[in-house]
Each structure stands twice: as structure tokens, then as C-alpha cells.
Nucleic acid binder design. Structure first.
Lengths: 122, 122
DNA sequence: CGCTACTGACTACATCTGTAGTTTCATCGA
DNA sequence: TCGATGAAACTACAGATGTAGTCAGTAGCG
């Protein structure tokens, strides 16, 4: 059971999953482009993530270095599971069907998924 | 752009998507098993959904009848889209891959999805 | 015709989220 | 050594969410 991570917190996690450990300032720099949050906001989010034990802190002189304690794959698997459970009764097929109907699936996507499924069976 | 629907509100929607119109009491009865909410809670959620114009109200004597204004398919498509965008950069393949790795896909699921994809191409 | 019971409307309130401002403490340079 | 600077800690605050309680009005029963 990975703690619930909010949307804003998730942005921070994505940064730390790309590179860690980072200081608060470094994280802020890396999200600044996309989100334009202030340094204070980033620090608040880092504190909340640390409180949830989703990231770890390590003292480096007067600063902290932050690193994920949860792997991206683990987190995504959990969240995906919940999503499919809640909205599609746990079945992936209807989800794929919906995305397909909404033209979210290109021919390349379809080929990729077919390839993936073939590997799963093999 | 369908308004944001919270988890609790979504439960109400599922009930109304199965059968509508329904009175508040009827909705409460139908969610009671699963969630055990009080009638008041259900009424609050119905009000919030009505305020968002996600459901419509129709007077029936001294009561209201509630019906969805948004189709389930439309809603699911939107939510799925956002989900895949946010967590998988818009690509469905990694999502399917994650579910597969987590053993969420049975052989039957795989066959079903393959079938679906074949239809999409055909 | 008046009271009761059911219904919607309004109010409540703690927690979570997004987005910071302010304070305090320590450190590094002059 | 002392002040400026930078970092974390603490505080703030409005809106969303989960979960109801209370009030007020009306329709139907006696």
C-alpha cells in the first residue's frame, strides 16, 4: 500500500524519479518550467511527501537531499490497479476499448500492444 | 470538458447510470450496501452533482427525480484520457504493460484485448 | 383542518490540496 | 566576529471532499 500521492506531489515525484538525490532548490528548478511553482510550494510538497515516507531525506550540511523511497513502477502499478478497479470493474479490456473508441489509439499503438501481448503469451 | 467528479460522487453516478431517474431515497438504498452512507450524505452528493450540472433534477410532487446528464461512456473516456496522459505520457502501451507485469492480465484478458484490437484494425 | 412525517435546503466541520508567506537558525564571507 | 544569505520549519488560507446534522416547508392522513 503506497500512500496516496496528490497531483501536485506527483509532479515532484516525477522529477525525483528522473534524478535523485536532489536538494529542494534543484527540484524547484526542474519543475519551474512546467508548473511555475514557487520554491516554498515545492518545499511544502517535499515535506508532505517526506511525512508520507514516500521520499527519504538525507542531511547534507545545512540542506537536505531528497530521494524517492518508492519506485516509479511500483507506484504506477498500484495506481493503475486502483484506477481500473474503480472505473472498469478491474477489467482492462473495457479501458482499452474506451481509449480505442475515443481515437486515442493509433495504428502504431495497436501494433505495439499486440506485440506486447504476444510476448506475454510466449 | 466534463466537470470533475469525486470518488464519492462517482459512486452515486454509477447508481444513476444503471437506472434513472431515481429519488434521493432510492439512490441511497442502492448505495447503502456498498458504502453505508446516510441518506443525508447521499443527498449532499446529489446536490453537488446537480450543482455541477452532471445530473439533472425533475420535480415529482414534493420530491426530486435525479438523472445523469453525462453518459457513462463519455465520462469514462475523459477520465481515462486524463489518467493515461498524466501517468503514462498519453501512451496506452506502458499502462497495459504495467497491468500485465503486475499479473493483472489473465490469459483470457489477453485474448479479449487481442480480439478487440483485431476488430479495430479490420 | 391540524399534525406528522418525509423531503429538500442550509449549515457544519475535519481533512486534504494547492499555493504560498513568515520565522528562525546556522553558516560563510568580509 | 558579525551580519547577510540561504535553508528548513512553522503558519496560513481558500477551495474540495467525506460525512453528516438541523431546519423548514408541504402533502397526505386522521
Amino acid at each position: 500500500m503506497v500512500e496516496r500521492i496528490s497531483d501536485a506531489e506527483h509532479e515532484i515525484m516525477e522529477v525525483l524519479w528522473i534524478k535523485a538525490p536532489l536538494t529542494a532548490t534543484e527540484v524547484a528548478d526542474r519543475v519551474a518550467d512546467a508548473k511555475g511553482w514557487s520554491l516554498q510550494t515545492v518545499k511544502t510538497l517535499l515535506s508532505r511527501l517526506a511525512a508520507k515516507a514516500v521520499i527519504g531525506t538525507e542531511r547534507d550540511g545545512r540542506r537536505f537531499l531528497y530521494s524517492p523511497l518508492v519506485e516509479r513502477d511500483t507506484y504506477l502499478a498500484g495506481v493503475s490497479r486502483k484506477f481500473v478497479d474503480r472505473l472498469f470493474g478491474g477489467k482492462v479490456t473495457p479501458l482499452v476499448a474506451h481509449l480505442a473508441e475515443a481515437d486515442e489509439l493509433s495504428d502504431d499503438d495497436i501494433r505495439e500492444i499486440e506485440e506486447l501481448l504476444r510476448e506475454l503469451k510466449g
